[in-house]
Amino acid sequence: MDTPDGFKAELIRGKIVVSPFSALRYLRPMRALRKQIEAHAPKGHFAETSPFLFSFPTAERAYGPDLFVADEASFGEEGRHADGAALSLVAEFTSLSTKDADWNEKLDVYGRLVPVYLVVDMQDSEITCFWDPSPHGYRSRTTVSFSEPLHVPEPFDFAIDTTGF
């Protein structure tokens, strides 16, 4: 799907949702987070902020995360949707237009499959790490304010420095 300049599209509950790209002030925390995560990514996985869609067939949804870590081998296929099972981490940076989906719909879908989900709440200046997915959603979570370190569990096992967020 071709979107207007400055917008991205995601498939949420069978509907195409078009939202604007992130505000300029999001670049520094996104870049800092990507660099830190990339240094600790599992072997064969890479961290990226490029706009790619990941499908979750059991939930009939596809999301284009703000930042993701995925198995590089999953990008050798034809098509426009990567398999959500290739993800080892997803991070969403909240905005007024996406905050509800980041905290609810995406949390529910990611919580059944993706090992680590980070919600970078730009409005409340906090970052939350969810981990230990199950058929009922994530079993564990930790929230810290920006400027405090946040531990990211296996398969990453390191602390994010959030002072620049």
Rank of each mutant, 00 (worst) to 15 (best):
R139C: 03
R28Y: 01
R13E: 12
G6V: 06
S140R: 15
L96R: 12
K35M: 10
M122F: 06
D161Q: 14
F158Y: 09
L11M: 12
T162Y: 04
P42H: 13
R141K: 09
P20D: 08
E126D: 02
T162S: 15
L107Y: 14
G84Y: 04
K35P: 00
P115A: 11
A59L: 11
T143W: 09
S50M: 14
Y63P: 00
S74M: 03
W131S: 15
D132A: 14
E92D: 03
P42T: 10
R34N: 05
N104F: 09
T128H: 05
A32L: 14
W103V: 04
R139E: 10
F75P: 03
E92G: 02
G137P: 10
V17W: 04
A9V: 05
A47G: 11
E148W: 08
P20G: 07
I127C: 05
R61I: 07
L27A: 02
M122T: 15
H151W: 08
F52H: 15
F7H: 12
V17D: 02
D124A: 07
E126Q: 12
V152D: 00
W131C: 14
S55Y: 03
P51V: 15
S74T: 08
L67D: 02
A62Q: 09
T98W: 08
F52V: 15
T98Y: 03
L150Y: 05
F56D: 07
V144S: 04
P155F: 09
P155M: 09
P135R: 11
P65A: 02
V109L: 06
R25C: 00
E77I: 11
Y63T: 00
G44R: 13
F165S: 02
E60H: 14
R61Y: 03
I16N: 00
T163P: 06
L87N: 01
G84V: 07
T98A: 07
P42N: 12
G84K: 05
D161T: 13
R61P: 00
N104Y: 07
L113R: 10
E148V: 05
P4C: 08
S88C: 07
F158H: 07
F146K: 03
S97C: 08
P65T: 06
S19C: 10
L113S: 11
P155S: 08
T3K: 15
A41R: 13
F7D: 02
R61A: 12
G64E: 15
R139G: 05
P65S: 03
I12D: 12
N104L: 09
T3H: 14
L118N: 03
I127W: 05
D124H: 05
Y110D: 00
A70N: 07
L11F: 08
F52S: 13
A23K: 14
V18D: 03
A101D: 11
S22Q: 15
F68W: 15
D108Y: 04
S88G: 01
H45M: 01
A159K: 12
A101R: 10
T142H: 11
G164Q: 05
